[in-house]
Structures are given as C-alpha cells and as structure tokens.
C-alpha cells in the first residue's frame, strides 16, 4: 500500500515537473539569444529585467527598496517572487526564471551551493534577524526578558512548529538554553508559519509568542517585551547569491551589493532587520 501510494505520488510529481521544465526550456533559450549581446556590450540603455526570488519575511522591506534601487539604476527593472525559502530553492532548481536568490535560511542556500545552482563567490549574508518575545498591545504583562517567563502564570504560548518552521527551531534552541522548553510543553501552541504565531498573539488568543523582530515590526497589535540573546540560538542570517543560470550576472550582483550598501542596510533596519 505504502509503495503504491509513493509510486502514484511520484507519477503525479514527475508529470508536473516535466510539464514545468518543458515550458521553461524554450523561453530560456530565447532569452539567451536575445540578451547575450546587449549584456556583453553592456549598453546602459537596454532594459534589464531582474527576477528576485526572496524569502517571504523580506516582502515589505524589499518592496520599499524597489523604488530607490530602480531610481539609481534606471536600466534595471525588478520583479519579486516571494515564498518560503525551501519552495523558492525547489523552483529555481526546476528552472524557474530567477537571477537573485535571497534565502531566510543557510540550509537552503547550502543545498543550492552543493547542487552548483548559485555563483559561490557572490554568496553573502546580507542581513540578520533576532527573536523577540511579544504580547498583545493591551496586555499588562510586566515581563521584560526571556528568562522572566513563568510557565505557570500563562495559558497559551505561541511558537513555530520546531521541526518544520525555522522560527520554531530557533525558539526551541533558545528555550532549551534557558531550561524553559520542558516546563512550557503543555502551554505551547504550534504555528505552521511565523505569520500564524503572530496572528495568535495579535488576536489575543495566546498570551505570548516568539517571532522575528522583522515580523513584530509590521504588526500594530503586538508589543515587543524582549529581544533574544544571539548566544541562545544559531545565528539567524539571510544569505543571498546570484543564480548561476542568470543571464544578467552583473545587474544581479549590483542588486546584491545594494542590499549591503548603507542605503540598503538602513531600509532593512527600518523594517526590523539587524
């Protein structure tokens, strides 16, 4: 039965995958023919369309960056594709058009590097995040550090599911360091992604939650009680790289450099990144 199920799944998946790659193949070759010439002669007037595959948590910051970047680089037009880092990596592997990959986890970028899908020299950690302890904006909680959390004094604590959601993994590491993971066990509500953890706290259903500082920033209904100490969990870094198959290596590198420039950093920090 199990084998039967698996083979059915594989059959469906392979049909889907073949469908995708067949559709994309001709497009890509066309692009090569059309755009190789202007790229090599680097005529500034020729417009370059850059496809940026970016982790969903970067959405607001990157939308904000778009206009300033395009003003400075008139020949480059940016198109974003937001999603979870794991799914984006799969898409790029299957030939989805993409010039820059901005991941929320080193793991997905490492996979891409191993498979030779990115330009290794271009890889760079362009920003980072910290965990924050949040509560509803109307809460009268007086906690001001992670260590102050008293499992007995709360009903529900929202965290990301630790096996599958990155923010949940970091939260688990943090609470294990602080010897709070076990005591909190029967208070935990596990979210399927970081947005759901935020929703549980925003709507006042969970007393506390742990999310990234950049997520807490975009919500008007929560307040930040404390920031995590970077020593409690693995570093939360955002690696970015130019995709190897990109036809616009130069423009892609320009965009990546822009993220780490003073202006790029400033914008990212405005949106809660570190």
């Amino acid at each position: 039965m199990k084998r039967f199920l698996l083979s059915v799944t594989f059959a469906v998946l392979s049909v889907l995958l073949f469908g995708c790659s067949n559709n994309n193949e001709p497009e890509k070759t066309d692009a090569t023919v059309d755009q190789e010439t202007p790229e090599s002669k680097s005529q500034p007037d020729e417009e370059v369309a850059l496809f940026i595959s970016a982790a969903a948590s970067l959405t607001d910051a990157l939308e904000d960056l778009k206009s300033t970047f395009e003003e400075e680089h008139e020949e480059i037009k940016l198109t974003y594709n937001f999603g979870s880092s794991g799914k984006l990596a799969k898409n790029i592997e299957n030939g989805a058009p993409s010039d820059v990959f901005l991941s929320a986890s080193s793991k997905d970028m490492n996979d891409m590097e191993e498979k030779g899908l990115i330009n290794n020299e271009s890889r760079e950690n362009f920003t980072s995040n910290v965990l924050v302890l949040i509560t509803h904006k109307d809460s009268d909680s007086t906690i001001d550090s992670f260590e102050d959390i008293d499992p007995a004094a709360l009903d529900h604590f929202a965290v990301g599911e630790p096996e599958s959601v990155p923010v949940g993994r970091y939260t688990k590491e943090t609470f294990e360091t602080l010897d709070l993971w076990e005591p909190l066990q029967d208070k935990l509500v596990l979210g399927s992604d970081v947005r759901q953890v935020l929703t549980h706290v925003e709507m006042g259903n969970a007393d506390y939650g742990v999310v990234y500082s950049s997520d807490a920033y975009i919500s008007n209904d929560v307040k930040v009680l404390a920031e995590s100490d970077p020593e409690w969990h693995a570093p939360i870094v955002y690696p970015g790289a130019v995709v190897k198959d990109s036809k616009h290596q130069e423009a892609a590198q320009q965009f990546l450099d822009y993220l780490t420039s003073d202006k790029g950093k400033e914008t990212l920090q405005e949106f809660g990144f570190k």
Binding site: H156, E161, V189, S192, Q196
Partner: peptide, 9 residues
Amino acid sequence: TLMLAGYIP
C-alpha cells in the same frame, strides 16, 4: 481547524 483549535500535540 488549524487557526481556531491551534496545533497542540
């Protein structure tokens, strides 16, 4: 269900 009941193993 995931939203209203949450995921509590």
